[in-house]
């Protein structure tokens, strides 16, 4: 019995540590951006950029983040080309969001290039994350 309790508590403890480490990941990434020269992050600047239209010269169409992620972040979006479902970005309904640094970096890079036509600055990326943290 003692053994079982010990085992269980080890499992619970490691889960808790793991969860804490994950919860911190978005902040870890933001401090990385600050180390790269960004200042304080602003959710409202992030939101402005999120909805700002950018003209894609090749297709002649306007693009913003809502093009794929939809207007309501607690709902799922749709890949503009393939139509494949994109799970909601809001962490209030999707606990997997903002928990994986590699994943966040990958998509911030790809999606800035697709949507704005260039990579985002450390400041811009941190602002996006600040906006998303509140969703």
């Amino acid at each position: 019995m003692k053994k079982l309790v010990l085992m269980l508590s080890t499992v619970v403890l490691s889960l808790a540590i793991n969860m804490q480490a994950q919860a911190g990941n978005v902040e870890t990434l933001q401090s990385e951006y600050q180390a790269a020269g960004a200042g304080n992050f602003s959710a409202s600047n992030g939101e402005k950029m999120w909805v700002k239209n950018n003209l894609d010269k090749k297709s002649g169409k306007q693009r913003n983040c809502q093009t794929c992620h939809g207007k309501v972040l607690t709902q799922s979006g749709k890949h503009a080309r393939t139509g494949k479902v994109i799970e909601p970005l809001a962490r209030s309904v999707n606990s997997e969001r903002l928990t994986d640094i590699k994943f966040m970096k990958k998509w911030l890079k790809r999606n800035c290039k697709w949507t704005i036509g260039r990579e985002c600055s450390a400041q811009e990326k941190g602002d996006f994350l600040e906006y998303l943290k509140g969703q």
Partner: peptide
């Protein structure tokens, strides 16, 4: 992958 059918699909 940086121009993957007009999408950016870059990987590390």
């Amino acid at each position: 992958l940086d121009d993957h059918f007009d999408e950016n699909a870059e990987l590390d």
